[in-house]
Structures are given as structure tokens and as C-alpha cells.
Amino acid sequence: MVIRELPSAATDLTEGPASDAPPRTVGRRRLRRAVVGTALFAGLPAALFALWWALSAGSTSFFFPPLSRIVDTFGTTWTPTRIGQDVLPSLVRLLAGFALAGVVGIALGVLIGSVPRLAWALGPTLAFLRAVPPPLLVPAIMLVLGIGDGMRITVVAVGCVWPVLLNTVDGVRSIDPLARDTVAGLHLSAVQRLRHLVLPAAGPRIAAGLEQALSLALVMVVISEMFAARDGLGRSILVFSQTFAIPAMWSGILLLGVLGILLAFGFRAVQRWALAWWFGATGAVR
């Protein structure tokens, strides 16, 4: 009969291998692990921040004001109105462009990945287009679409589509032939195959592409706002530096950094949720 017992399957999928310690100490051990985990996570960043604060405290350098002043300025600079005018539009453009890139990249990627002849035919073209640095698209797209939200969203979408597209193609092409065999005998429709095999199987790869695309999206939005400087977070930061409003400039840099971090962490949370099976499966084999 069954040789191995389920480690902790079905009952608690989030826990690692069951510990054989008596239940009394388990709680304490878990607590200790949580404390150590938090210390590891927050320790160094907090220390570095404190160090910056301490070292810059007496700074008289024009370019590097004390962190305390930057933080003060942060509050007065990024008022709700300003955030509504400058930051939100940038974020909306970013997300719209990213979503567009995601949909188009995944759709085209699945198509190209599923039809070898299409992949062969478009291979050289894609290799070239991918190598064109996305920031250079800003002037070209501005020429065609003018300076508006449409241009900025397009810039983000066109710039970010490559990592999604190429990773999707790779993901689809590396689907295990045995998995395809398995599905072949089940007489699934194309949509069912997509839903039950292709998208989940290529999912980890697609997610890797989306992650790259998201960090690129932030860069593209800011570049488009700095290059065609009319509005947005990118323009504000540039104007601060041009008018030598140094603490405000630093507060803007800080804000951009925080945005980048929030986007990255948010993406990772979604990814952990959507690809729980993948983290579980690869963790189990590790």
C-alpha cells in the first residue's frame, strides 16, 4: 500500500514539513522564527536609514541636505493635491500601458509560441526589435501621437511588450511534450487547452516577463514625462532640480523609489497568490 505519508498535504498547504516537536514548543518556535524573520527583513534597511539620517544630520552640502530636511519637505511637497495632479496620472498611465503590454504580449506570445512556423518567420524581426532600447521609442511615438496620455500609454506599452512577449513564447514552447500528449487524448477545445494547459504551464515564465515589464514601465513613464516635459512625476522632479529646489528633488527621488518598491512588492504578492502551485511544487523538490 501507500509507502509514504502525506507530509501535511490537504490540511495545511502553507506549512513546511511537519515538525515532530511536541505541540507545546511549536508555538514558541514559530514565534521565534517570526521574530528572527522580521529582524532579518527590517534590520539592515532600518540600520542603513538610521545611518543616512545620522551622517547627513549636520550636512551643509548644498546637494546633499540632511535626511531630516528631505523628510520634512516630503510632507510639504507631496500634498494630496499634488499627488492627485502629478503622481496619480503617472500611475494610471503606467498601469494602463502595462496592462496593454501584458494582454498584447501574452496573446501574441501564445500565438507565436504555438505556431513554430510563425516563430521562425518572425524570429529575426523580433530579435531586432527587442534589441532597440525602448527609451528611443519616446521621440518616435511622440512624433506620431503627439504629447498626450495616448502617447505615454503607448510608449509604456510598446516598451514593455517585449519581455512579456518573449517570455511567453519561451514558456509556451517549453511546455512539456508529455503534458501536450496528456491533453491530446482528452479532446479539449482550443480555449480549454489554453485555460487548463498552456497558460498555467507557461505561467511562471509569463510572470517573469511581466515582472521585468513592470519595472520597465515605471522607467518608461518617467522618461516620457522627462523628455516631453509637460506634466507628471518625472517632469516635477526634473523641474525641482532645474530650479535648485534640492530637498524637494530628493523627496521626489524618494517618492519614485517608494513607488518602485511598492510596485515590485505588490507584483510579488499577486504572483505568490496566482502561482502558489509553482512555488509549492518547486519548493517541494528543492
Binding site: A179, G185, L186, L188, S189, A281
Partner: peptide, 28 residues
């Protein structure tokens, strides 16, 4: 006609629970 492969690890889908893996054969 149904088939069982040597490599169970590759023919079961890791993104589906046991139930959904078996249910796959009943989709249509």
C-alpha cells in the same frame, strides 16, 4: 482510449489539485 505514462511527474499537472487533475478527463 486512455493512456498512463511512465513519468507520472510529468503527466500530472502541478497547477491542479489531485481532484482537478482527474477531473480533466471529464471536462468534455
Amino acid at each position: 482510449l486512455a493512456m498512463v505514462h511512465q513519468e507520472y511527474g510529468r503527466s500530472l499537472f502541478p497547477w491542479k489539485t489531485v481532484r482537478d487533475n482527474v477531473d480533466l478527463a471529464l471536462l468534455n
